[in-house]
Simulated scan of single mutants.
Amino acid sequence: MQIYPTMSPLELGGKQGSAVALGYFDGIHIGHRSVIGGAVDWAAAHGAAPAVFTFKLPAGSKIKGRRLFSAEDKHRLVAGLGVEHYLVPAFEDIQAMTPDQFVRGLVADCQARAFFCGENFTFGAKAAGNPALLQELCAPLGVEVHILPMAQYEGKPVSSTRIRAALEGGDIPAANGMLGAPYAIRFPVRHGQGLGHTLGVPTINQIYPDGYQLPRYGIYITRTWIGGKAYPSATGLGSRPTVNDDPAKVTCETFIPGFSGDLYGADPVVEFHTYLSPSKKFDTLDELCACIQNAARRAQEYFQ
């Protein structure tokens, strides 16, 4: 997948124009997948190139809420859906465009033959454009506009806001159902205190960067992917109340039974599947060790 960090012409390589999915796509959830999949399928049927148009918010921006994925993981997910061209200009570069300027510029850059968007899509300065206006502006340009209904989960529209709320509440099945895939993190493994090795339950230590959505503190059944192989695992997310003297420090530690090897500096993928219990302070390290072993046993049973 070719990534374009600015508004620029697509290098279509002989393809007959493009079909472009439009949106912010922060969660790549089932609604986003429907919009992107529509563009991919249309492109395949019409000899066009499948493309996505989105944008990059300034660092620290809270316009769209806390991040669910890194930019790199969004790229992997979108590429995995069959997209060949990914336009992601800075928000500052497009925020002053009128709806007409936005549409005409995008049609020219993409040689667009079809646009796909959700029914809640907005565009142009101050979000003045909506799907109806997109159809109106595209009609004289000969560009098709396909408006897809919002995806539903348990009778309500899917949104990244709902996914964040599900993670905050520890409702991993709901988050995964709306995402269309397991919620997962891919952060570098950091050096910790080495306590897990001492207890016989070595863990990998990953730190959520600032601005990312945190799941509920507690213990989870997870699955960790290392070198293309999946391992049942148990993950503790929180302030490590038994051994940590800094309650503000949040860690994500995963015990992977059956795995031995040095993962420092690597970025294994840890998928979250089920919330087991809240974090608690144990009276002894033996009790802590027993809790970790029990969670690991339940993870192995879960994936059998």
Rank of each mutant, 00 (worst) to 15 (best):
102 F>S: 09
215 P>I: 02
58 P>C: 10
197 H>D: 07
18 S>M: 04
241 P>Q: 03
236 G>E: 12
179 L>I: 03
126 K>C: 08
300 Q>F: 08
208 Y>E: 05
143 V>R: 09
226 I>A: 13
271 E>M: 04
59 A>M: 09
251 T>P: 00
22 L>R: 12
284 T>N: 03
225 W>F: 14
11 E>M: 12
70 S>D: 11
230 A>H: 01
298 R>F: 08
58 P>G: 05
121 F>Y: 15
171 D>Y: 14
250 V>Q: 00
26 D>Q: 13
192 G>E: 01
247 P>L: 00
224 T>P: 08
67 R>V: 14
160 S>G: 11
63 I>P: 10
8 S>L: 12
88 V>N: 07
100 D>Q: 13
14 G>I: 08
138 C>R: 00
248 A>V: 00
64 K>S: 08
127 A>I: 13
153 Y>C: 12
151 A>V: 09
31 G>P: 01
97 M>L: 15
241 P>F: 04
208 Y>D: 04
231 Y>M: 04
216 R>I: 04
38 G>F: 14
53 F>T: 05
185 I>P: 06
193 Q>I: 02
111 Q>E: 15
196 G>Y: 02
114 A>K: 00
280 K>L: 12
112 A>H: 03
144 E>L: 12
108 A>V: 12
145 V>E: 15
266 A>W: 12
166 A>E: 06
271 E>T: 06
303 F>I: 07
160 S>D: 11
188 P>Y: 01
110 C>G: 09
169 G>R: 15
278 P>V: 09
60 G>A: 01
13 G>E: 15
177 G>D: 11
98 T>D: 09
30 I>S: 07
238 G>C: 00
151 A>L: 05
52 V>M: 06
142 G>T: 11
193 Q>T: 10
286 D>R: 00
84 E>Q: 15
84 E>V: 04
5 P>W: 07
91 F>H: 07
267 D>T: 15
77 L>E: 02
300 Q>Y: 08
15 K>C: 14
220 Y>T: 05
139 A>N: 07
117 C>L: 14
4 Y>M: 11
133 L>F: 08
236 G>R: 03
36 I>S: 04
239 S>Q: 04
57 L>M: 12
85 H>G: 08
260 S>W: 09
157 P>W: 02
255 F>G: 00
